[in-house]
Amino acid sequence: MEIKNENNQAPEVEQMPSAPEAEKAFETTDATTAQDEVKEQIPEPETIIEVKNVSMDFYSRDEKVDNLKEFFIRLIRGKLEKKKTRILNNISFSVKKGESIALIGHNGAGKSTLLKMLTGIYSPTEGTIKVKGKVAPLLNLGAGFDHEASAKENVYLNGAILGYSRKELAKKYDEIVDFAELHDHMHIPIKNFSSGMVARLGFAIAIDVDPDILLVDEILSVGDENFRRKCANKIDELRKKGVTFVIVSHNIGQVKSLCQKAVWIENSELMAYGEVNEVCEKYQKYCESLKH
Protein backbone atom coordinates (compact mmCIF):
# COMPACT_ATOMS: atom_id res chain seq x y z
CA MET A 1 0.00 0.00 0.00
CA GLU A 2 1.16 3.45 -0.83
CA ILE A 3 2.44 5.65 1.94
CA LYS A 4 1.76 9.32 1.71
CA ASN A 5 3.82 11.90 3.50
CA GLU A 6 1.76 14.91 2.79
CA ASN A 7 -1.03 16.09 4.95
CA ASN A 8 -3.50 16.56 2.21
CA GLN A 9 -5.54 13.53 1.48
CA ALA A 10 -8.50 15.11 -0.20
CA PRO A 11 -8.00 14.12 -3.84
CA GLU A 12 -7.18 10.53 -2.93
CA VAL A 13 -10.34 9.92 -0.99
CA GLU A 14 -12.49 9.18 -3.98
CA GLN A 15 -9.95 6.92 -5.54
CA MET A 16 -9.76 4.61 -2.57
CA PRO A 17 -10.84 1.20 -3.80
CA SER A 18 -12.52 0.00 -0.66
CA ALA A 19 -13.47 1.30 2.70
CA PRO A 20 -11.02 -0.60 4.94
CA GLU A 21 -8.06 0.34 2.80
CA ALA A 22 -9.14 3.91 2.73
CA GLU A 23 -9.23 3.89 6.47
CA LYS A 24 -5.67 2.71 6.67
CA ALA A 25 -4.59 5.40 4.30
CA PHE A 26 -5.95 8.06 6.56
CA GLU A 27 -4.24 6.66 9.56
CA THR A 28 -0.93 6.85 7.81
CA THR A 29 -1.24 10.28 6.39
CA ASP A 30 0.50 12.10 9.18
CA ALA A 31 2.95 9.38 10.00
CA THR A 32 5.72 8.24 7.74
CA THR A 33 6.20 4.67 8.88
CA ALA A 34 2.80 3.31 9.66
CA GLN A 35 2.19 0.06 7.86
CA ASP A 36 -0.47 -1.49 10.02
CA GLU A 37 -2.83 -0.70 12.84
CA VAL A 38 -0.06 -0.19 15.39
CA LYS A 39 -0.32 3.42 16.32
CA GLU A 40 1.49 3.71 19.61
CA GLN A 41 5.03 4.25 18.42
CA ILE A 42 4.18 7.09 16.05
CA PRO A 43 3.30 10.58 17.27
CA GLU A 44 -0.46 10.44 16.97
CA PRO A 45 -2.18 13.60 15.73
CA GLU A 46 -3.76 15.04 18.80
CA THR A 47 -7.46 14.87 19.37
CA ILE A 48 -8.83 18.36 19.07
CA ILE A 49 -12.53 17.70 19.37
CA GLU A 50 -13.85 15.26 21.90
CA VAL A 51 -17.57 14.77 22.36
CA LYS A 52 -18.38 12.40 25.18
CA ASN A 53 -21.86 11.11 26.03
CA VAL A 54 -23.42 14.40 25.12
CA SER A 55 -27.14 14.95 25.55
CA MET A 56 -29.09 18.10 25.04
CA ASP A 57 -32.53 19.02 26.34
CA PHE A 58 -34.58 21.99 25.32
CA TYR A 59 -37.26 23.24 27.61
CA SER A 60 -40.31 24.70 26.03
CA ARG A 61 -43.80 25.43 27.12
CA ASP A 62 -46.64 23.87 25.15
CA GLU A 63 -47.32 27.08 23.39
CA LYS A 64 -44.66 29.68 23.57
CA VAL A 65 -45.49 32.06 26.40
CA ASP A 66 -43.57 35.16 25.54
CA ASN A 67 -45.70 37.94 26.92
CA LEU A 68 -46.84 39.01 30.34
CA LYS A 69 -50.56 38.75 29.57
CA GLU A 70 -50.27 35.12 28.54
CA PHE A 71 -47.94 34.41 31.45
CA PHE A 72 -50.39 35.65 34.08
CA ILE A 73 -53.39 33.96 32.50
CA ARG A 74 -51.53 30.66 32.58
CA LEU A 75 -50.15 31.32 36.03
CA ILE A 76 -53.68 31.67 37.34
CA ARG A 77 -54.86 28.58 35.51
CA GLY A 78 -51.78 26.71 36.61
CA LYS A 79 -50.74 25.82 33.09
CA LEU A 80 -47.14 26.84 33.22
CA GLU A 81 -45.27 23.53 33.36
CA LYS A 82 -42.45 23.17 30.92
CA LYS A 83 -42.04 20.41 28.42
CA LYS A 84 -38.67 18.77 27.99
CA THR A 85 -37.56 17.84 24.50
CA ARG A 86 -34.46 15.78 23.95
CA ILE A 87 -32.60 17.15 20.94
CA LEU A 88 -29.54 14.95 21.21
CA ASN A 89 -29.13 11.72 23.14
CA ASN A 90 -25.83 10.26 24.24
CA ILE A 91 -23.60 11.28 21.35
CA SER A 92 -19.89 10.46 21.41
CA PHE A 93 -17.18 10.91 18.80
CA SER A 94 -13.78 12.49 18.45
CA VAL A 95 -11.88 14.30 15.74
CA LYS A 96 -8.12 14.41 15.32
CA LYS A 97 -6.16 17.37 14.09
CA GLY A 98 -6.30 17.76 10.33
CA GLU A 99 -9.20 15.36 9.97
CA SER A 100 -12.50 16.31 8.45
CA ILE A 101 -15.74 14.97 9.72
CA ALA A 102 -19.24 15.24 8.32
CA LEU A 103 -22.48 15.32 10.25
CA ILE A 104 -25.26 13.72 8.23
CA GLY A 105 -28.88 12.94 8.87
CA HIS A 106 -32.34 14.24 8.07
CA ASN A 107 -33.57 17.73 8.80
CA GLY A 108 -34.28 18.27 12.46
CA ALA A 109 -32.08 15.39 13.54
CA GLY A 110 -29.97 17.67 15.73
CA LYS A 111 -26.95 18.27 13.50
CA SER A 112 -27.04 22.05 13.67
CA THR A 113 -27.57 21.92 17.42
CA LEU A 114 -24.45 19.80 17.69
CA LEU A 115 -22.53 22.29 15.58
CA LYS A 116 -23.67 25.12 17.81
CA MET A 117 -22.50 23.15 20.82
CA LEU A 118 -19.07 22.79 19.24
CA THR A 119 -19.01 26.56 18.73
CA GLY A 120 -19.83 27.04 22.39
CA ILE A 121 -23.18 28.71 21.78
CA TYR A 122 -25.11 25.95 23.54
CA SER A 123 -23.76 23.99 26.43
CA PRO A 124 -24.72 20.32 26.79
CA THR A 125 -27.26 19.19 29.37
CA GLU A 126 -25.21 16.08 30.02
CA GLY A 127 -21.76 14.95 28.96
CA THR A 128 -18.69 16.92 28.01
CA ILE A 129 -17.35 18.61 24.92
CA LYS A 130 -13.68 19.42 24.65
CA VAL A 131 -12.49 21.60 21.83
CA LYS A 132 -8.89 22.71 21.46
CA GLY A 133 -7.83 25.65 19.34
CA LYS A 134 -9.55 28.47 17.57
CA VAL A 135 -12.99 27.68 16.19
CA ALA A 136 -14.48 29.61 13.30
CA PRO A 137 -18.17 28.98 12.70
CA LEU A 138 -19.49 29.28 9.17
CA LEU A 139 -23.15 29.02 10.07
CA ASN A 140 -25.76 30.72 7.97
CA LEU A 141 -23.67 33.33 6.21
CA GLY A 142 -24.58 36.92 6.68
CA ALA A 143 -26.84 36.23 9.63
CA GLY A 144 -24.79 38.64 11.68
CA PHE A 145 -24.96 41.50 9.24
CA ASP A 146 -26.59 44.78 10.06
CA HIS A 147 -28.54 45.65 6.96
CA GLU A 148 -28.49 49.38 7.59
CA ALA A 149 -24.71 49.48 7.85
CA SER A 150 -22.38 49.52 4.87
CA ALA A 151 -20.48 46.47 3.71
CA LYS A 152 -17.27 47.95 5.05
CA GLU A 153 -18.70 48.50 8.52
CA ASN A 154 -20.04 44.98 8.49
CA VAL A 155 -16.63 43.58 7.64
CA TYR A 156 -15.18 45.31 10.69
CA LEU A 157 -18.06 44.31 12.94
CA ASN A 158 -18.00 40.69 11.83
CA GLY A 159 -14.23 40.60 12.07
CA ALA A 160 -14.44 41.80 15.66
CA ILE A 161 -16.96 39.08 16.40
CA LEU A 162 -14.55 36.51 15.00
CA GLY A 163 -11.91 37.87 17.34
CA TYR A 164 -9.83 40.26 15.28
CA SER A 165 -8.58 43.66 16.30
CA ARG A 166 -9.08 46.62 14.04
CA LYS A 167 -5.40 46.60 13.13
CA GLU A 168 -5.43 42.97 12.07
CA LEU A 169 -8.56 43.58 10.05
CA ALA A 170 -7.13 46.61 8.30
CA LYS A 171 -4.45 44.28 6.95
CA LYS A 172 -6.96 41.65 5.87
CA TYR A 173 -9.51 44.07 4.51
CA ASP A 174 -8.25 44.19 0.91
CA GLU A 175 -7.96 40.43 0.81
CA ILE A 176 -11.56 40.06 1.94
CA VAL A 177 -12.84 42.54 -0.63
CA ASP A 178 -10.82 40.82 -3.35
CA PHE A 179 -12.23 37.45 -2.47
CA ALA A 180 -15.80 38.68 -2.33
CA GLU A 181 -15.31 40.64 -5.58
CA LEU A 182 -17.25 43.57 -4.23
CA HIS A 183 -14.75 46.37 -4.81
CA ASP A 184 -17.29 48.95 -5.95
CA HIS A 185 -19.92 48.12 -3.38
CA MET A 186 -18.19 48.39 -0.03
CA HIS A 187 -19.77 51.71 0.92
CA ILE A 188 -23.31 50.64 0.12
CA PRO A 189 -25.61 49.48 2.94
CA ILE A 190 -26.08 45.71 2.91
CA LYS A 191 -29.83 46.09 2.49
CA ASN A 192 -29.21 47.03 -1.14
CA PHE A 193 -27.21 43.87 -1.79
CA SER A 194 -28.52 40.81 -3.55
CA SER A 195 -28.63 37.65 -1.47
CA GLY A 196 -25.74 36.23 -3.45
CA MET A 197 -23.61 39.27 -2.70
CA VAL A 198 -24.42 39.01 1.00
CA ALA A 199 -23.43 35.36 1.02
CA ARG A 200 -20.20 36.13 -0.82
CA LEU A 201 -19.24 38.80 1.66
CA GLY A 202 -20.13 36.53 4.55
CA PHE A 203 -18.05 33.71 3.18
CA ALA A 204 -15.10 35.98 2.43
CA ILE A 205 -15.00 37.27 6.01
CA ALA A 206 -15.56 33.92 7.63
CA ILE A 207 -12.97 32.13 5.55
CA ASP A 208 -10.29 34.76 6.00
CA VAL A 209 -9.59 33.77 9.57
CA ASP A 210 -6.87 31.35 10.57
CA PRO A 211 -8.89 28.80 12.48
CA ASP A 212 -7.81 25.43 13.79
CA ILE A 213 -11.33 24.18 13.35
CA LEU A 214 -13.85 25.33 10.78
CA LEU A 215 -17.51 24.50 11.34
CA VAL A 216 -19.47 24.58 8.13
CA ASP A 217 -23.25 24.39 7.96
CA GLU A 218 -24.76 23.87 4.51
CA ILE A 219 -23.09 26.84 2.98
CA LEU A 220 -21.01 25.36 0.24
CA SER A 221 -23.80 26.09 -2.18
CA VAL A 222 -23.70 29.87 -2.13
CA GLY A 223 -23.18 32.19 -5.03
CA ASP A 224 -22.82 31.41 -8.72
CA GLU A 225 -20.81 28.57 -10.24
CA ASN A 226 -17.68 30.69 -10.40
CA PHE A 227 -17.77 31.67 -6.78
CA ARG A 228 -18.59 28.17 -5.66
CA ARG A 229 -15.45 26.89 -7.34
CA LYS A 230 -13.48 29.61 -5.61
CA CYS A 231 -14.89 28.53 -2.27
CA ALA A 232 -14.00 24.91 -2.96
CA ASN A 233 -10.43 25.92 -3.81
CA LYS A 234 -10.15 27.95 -0.66
CA ILE A 235 -11.40 25.07 1.42
CA ASP A 236 -8.87 22.75 -0.21
CA GLU A 237 -6.15 25.23 0.57
CA LEU A 238 -7.17 25.33 4.22
CA ARG A 239 -7.24 21.56 4.38
CA LYS A 240 -3.69 21.47 3.11
CA LYS A 241 -2.77 23.78 5.97
CA GLY A 242 -4.13 21.19 8.35
CA VAL A 243 -7.36 22.88 9.35
CA THR A 244 -9.92 20.53 10.82
CA PHE A 245 -13.36 20.63 9.24
CA VAL A 246 -16.72 19.76 10.70
CA ILE A 247 -19.29 19.85 7.94
CA VAL A 248 -23.06 19.56 7.99
CA SER A 249 -24.30 18.63 4.55
CA HIS A 250 -27.01 16.76 2.71
CA ASN A 251 -24.86 16.36 -0.33
CA ILE A 252 -23.42 12.86 0.08
CA GLY A 253 -21.03 13.26 -2.85
CA GLN A 254 -19.58 16.37 -1.29
CA VAL A 255 -19.31 14.68 2.10
CA LYS A 256 -17.42 11.76 0.62
CA SER A 257 -14.98 13.96 -1.22
CA LEU A 258 -14.30 16.29 1.68
CA CYS A 259 -14.33 14.10 4.77
CA GLN A 260 -12.67 11.02 6.14
CA LYS A 261 -15.15 10.36 8.87
CA ALA A 262 -18.84 10.82 9.30
CA VAL A 263 -21.32 10.96 12.11
CA TRP A 264 -24.89 9.99 11.29
CA ILE A 265 -27.53 11.35 13.60
CA GLU A 266 -31.17 10.44 13.27
CA ASN A 267 -33.97 11.40 15.66
CA SER A 268 -31.51 12.68 18.25
CA GLU A 269 -29.63 9.36 18.32
CA LEU A 270 -26.19 8.51 17.05
CA MET A 271 -26.83 5.90 14.34
CA ALA A 272 -23.31 5.39 13.05
CA TYR A 273 -19.90 6.86 13.42
CA GLY A 274 -16.75 5.97 11.58
CA GLU A 275 -15.20 5.91 8.15
CA VAL A 276 -17.10 8.10 5.72
CA ASN A 277 -18.00 5.58 3.02
CA GLU A 278 -19.34 3.05 5.48
CA VAL A 279 -21.49 5.57 7.29
CA CYS A 280 -22.79 7.11 4.09
CA GLU A 281 -23.68 3.68 2.75
CA LYS A 282 -25.69 2.88 5.87
CA TYR A 283 -27.34 6.27 5.69
CA GLN A 284 -28.29 5.84 2.05
CA LYS A 285 -29.69 2.40 2.73
CA TYR A 286 -31.78 3.88 5.49
CA CYS A 287 -33.01 6.61 3.17
CA GLU A 288 -33.95 4.00 0.57
CA SER A 289 -35.86 1.99 3.17
CA LEU A 290 -37.86 5.07 4.07
CA LYS A 291 -39.07 5.49 0.51
CA HIS A 292 -40.69 2.05 0.40
Binding site: T119, I121, A143, F145
Partner: peptide
Amino acid sequence: RGLLTKNKI
Protein backbone atom coordinates in the same frame (compact mmCIF):
# COMPACT_ATOMS: atom_id res chain seq x y z
CA ARG B 1 -30.47 36.95 17.82
CA GLY B 2 -28.85 36.44 14.43
CA LEU B 3 -25.48 37.19 15.97
CA LEU B 4 -26.05 35.48 19.28
CA THR B 5 -27.25 32.17 17.90
CA LYS B 6 -24.54 31.91 15.26
CA ASN B 7 -21.45 33.12 17.07
CA LYS B 8 -20.00 32.89 20.49
CA ILE B 9 -20.40 36.44 21.75
